[in-house]
Design a protein around this nucleic acid. Structure first.
Lengths: 320, 320
DNA sequence: ATTTGAACTGAAACGCGTTTCATACGCTAT
DNA sequence: ATAGCGTATGAAACGCGTTTCAGTTCAAAT
C-alpha cells in the first residue's frame, strides 16, 4: 500500500506539500498540485484514516446510544441526528444497548479511547457518579433532564406531556385513568409517574395500582395489555399509552372483542406515528426530529453546556 | 494526557515492557509488571485506540449495511451478528442507508480507509463492477446469492421460500394468487419474481399485474394495500406478503371491513414475528439469527470465500 | 533602493502504540 | 566445559498523516 511518502517521492515534492494538496490547503503551486494529483490517481492512493485520527486527535464520529433501533421513538430521534450529522460532515455510530449497562459502557469507553469525538445518550443505564468519570474524555449529551451544569441535554418534557394528556382526559369526563409504559424506573418514567401522582392529588382521585401497566414497547405488548384489561374486574376507562404502536395493538384487540373505543376505553398514544394516523388514534406529537438535531449539535460543542426542553402537542382523533 | 512513554518513565522500564504488560504478553517479571500496573492506575492511563489501530492495521470493527434498522427482518439479522460479534470480541458499526447509494459508499469507504476490518452488506445498492473495486480492501460479505467466487455470502433462498408458499396456496385451492413486496428490483425481489413466474407457468396460470403490489415495508403499508384491494374489481384471493407487519396491517383493515380471512382473502406473511403469532397469521419462518451469525463469521475470514444458503419453513396458522 | 509581506516549500517533530532485533542472564543437556 | 534454550528487557524502527517552523522567492509599497 502506498503512503504519503511514496506519493511525495513520485510527485517530486515533500510530504507537507502532498498533505496540503490532500487537504485543499492554499499556497500550493498549480504545477505541484497537478503532480501530486497525478501520483495519487496513478497509485490509487488513499489516506489511512487511523493515521489521520491519531494525528489530529479527532475522528469526526459521534456515538449514539439507544436501547433499541427498531423502535419508532428512537428511530425518529436518530433520523434527526443523521440529518444534522450529514450537514456537519460527521459520522454517527449507533450503539444498541437493550438497556444493558455493559453495552453502554462500550460506547463510553470508545469515547475514552478517542474513537469518538462525542457521545449522545438517548437512554442511560449507568449511574451518575460513574458517568461523571467520563466527563473529561469528551462531550456527553443526554436526552433527559439533568438540571446540572455538567452535561448538555435535550429532552421532551414528559411531565408536561403527561399532565396535558391527563387533563384532557379529565376534561372529557374520564375519572378512572391509568397508563402503560415500558420501564418503571427509567428517567422518563419517573417524570411520568410524578405527573400522574400530581394529577391524582390535584383532582382528588385515588391511586389504583391496577391502572398502571409496565413492559410495553411495541404492538404485541399492547395486544397483551388489552387482553389483560379485558380480564380485569376493576378496569380503567382511559389509558395513556407510551407509544402509538402499543395503542394500535390495544385497538386491534379491543375491536376484535367488541370493546367500544372510546366509550368503554379511551386511549391516548405518544409519538404521532403513521399508524396512529391510520388507525385514528388520539396521540401526542413529539418533536423528535428537532430534538435529534439539537442533541447532535450539542455533541459538537465540547465547551458549551446547554439544556433544551421540547414541548409536545396533543392531536385529537377518535380514541378519546 | 499520559502516553505509554510516560508510563515507561514512571515505572522505570522501557515502552516495550509497558506494551507487554498492557497486552498480557509473557516474559515480564512480576516486579516490573507490578510497577507498570501501579503507574497505569496512578495516572489513569488508557491506550489511544487510534494509535493501536494504526500500528496493528486492524480495528476489530466490522461494518454492517442495512437499509433500515427499525425493521424486524434486519433487526433479527443484526441481532444474530451482534451475538457473534460479542463472542469474537469484535465491534459492529451499523450503517443505515435507506437504500441510498451514497450512504452505502460511506461504509465501503470506511473499509477502504481501514476503519473497518470487514463489511457485511445486508442490502446492496452499488453495482457489481464498482463493488469489485472494493474487493481488495477487506472481506465483503453479501446477503444475496452471488454464485461467484469473489465474495462470501449467506442468504435466504427466497426462490425456495416463495415457491413453497405458492404451492401451499395452490394445494389449498387458491388460483388467483399475488404478492406484495418492498421493492421491485432488489436482489431478493428478483428471485421472488422468478419463483412467481415459474409457478404461474408450471400451473398454467396467467400473469395478472393487478395481483402484485410494491412499496410494502411496514404495518401502515399493509393497511393501505388492503384498502387498495378492497377497491379493486379483479381481486387476488391469496397474497404472499413480504413480512408479518404488513400482513398484520392487512388483517386489521380486512377485519374492520368485514372481509373474511382466509375465505375471501388468504395471507401468508414472512419472518414469523411475534405479531404473526399473536394475530394468527400463517407465515414463513426465516432463520435470520443463524444467518446473521454466519454472515459475521464469514466477515472475519478474509481469505476464505464461502457461500451458505438457508432454508425456510412454513408455519400454518389461521390466515390460509 | 529598501522594506514588507504574501505565496510557496520542505525538514523535522509530533501523535502513540506495536514489533522486531539484539543482548544478557541463568539453567540444563551433552 | 560448552552449546543451547527459555526468560527477560530495552533500543529503535515502524505504521502514516498533520503541523510547526524556518526559509525562499518575487512583487508591491514606501
Amino acid at each position: 500500500m502506498t503512503n504519503i511518502r511514496d506519493i511525495a517521492k513520485i510527485a517530486g515534492v515533500s510530504v507537507s506539500t502532498v498533505s496540503r494538496v490532500l487537504n485543499h490547503h492554499p499556497y500550493v503551486s498549480e504545477e505541484k498540485r497537478r503532480a501530486v494529483e497525478t501520483a495519487v490517481i496513478q497509485t490509487n492512493y488513499h489516506q489511512n484514516m487511523n493515521a489521520i485520527h491519531l494525528s489530529t486527535g479527532k475522528t469526526n464520529i459521534i456515538g449514539v446510544v439507544v436501547p433499541f433501533t427498531n423502535h419508532p421513538y428512537f428511530g425518529k430521534l436518530v433520523e434527526g441526528m443523521m440529518e444534522q450529522a450529514e450537514q456537519d460532515n460527521h459520522k454517527i455510530i449507533l450503539f444498541q444497548t437493550n438497556y444493558r449497562l455493559e453495552r453502554e459502557r462500550e460506547a463510553l469507553d470508545m469515547l475514552k479511547y478517542k474513537q469518538l469525538d462525542g457521545l449522545i445518550l438517548c437512554s442511560r443505564e449507568i449511574d451518575w457518579p460513574f458517568l461523571l468519570e467520563y466527563r473529561e474524555y469528551g462531550p456527553i449529551v443526554l436526552a433527559e433532564k439533568t438540571s446540572q451544569q455538567t452535561f448538555s441535554a435535550s429532552y421532551i418534557d414528559h411531565y408536561q406531556a403527561f399532565s396535558q394528556a391527563l387533563s384532557f382526559l379529565y376534561d372529557k369526563g374520564y375519572r378512572k385513568i391509568g397508563y402503560c409504559v415500558g420501564r418503571q424506573n427509567g428517567a422518563n418514567s419517573k417524570q411520568r409517574w410524578q405527573a400522574y401522582q400530581d394529577f391524582l392529588k390535584e383532582n382528588g382521585l385515588e391511586y389504583n395500582r391496577d391502572y398502571t401497566y409496565y413492559g410495553c414497547y411495541q404492538f404485541e405488548d399492547g395486544a397483551h395489555i388489552a387482553l389483560k384489561w379485558l380480564e380485569q374486574k376493576n378496569r380503567p376507562e382511559a389509558l395513556l399509552v407510551a407509544n402509538d404502536q402499543i395503542a394500535a395493538g390495544m385497538v386491534t384487540v379491543c375491536r376484535k372483542h367488541h370493546v367500544d373505543i372510546p366509550h368503554q376505553l379511551a386511549l391516548i398514544g405518544f409519538d404521532n406515528q403513521p399508524i396512529a394516523n391510520f388507525m385514528e388514534i388520539t396521540t401526542i406529537d413529539l418533536p423528535l426530529l428537532q430534538m435529534g438535531q439539537q442533541l447532535f449539535q450539542q455533541a459538537l460543542q465540547p465547551d458549551h453546556i446547554s439544556e433544551h426542553q421540547f414541548v409536545t402537542s396533543l392531536i385529537e382523533r377518535q380514541t378519546v
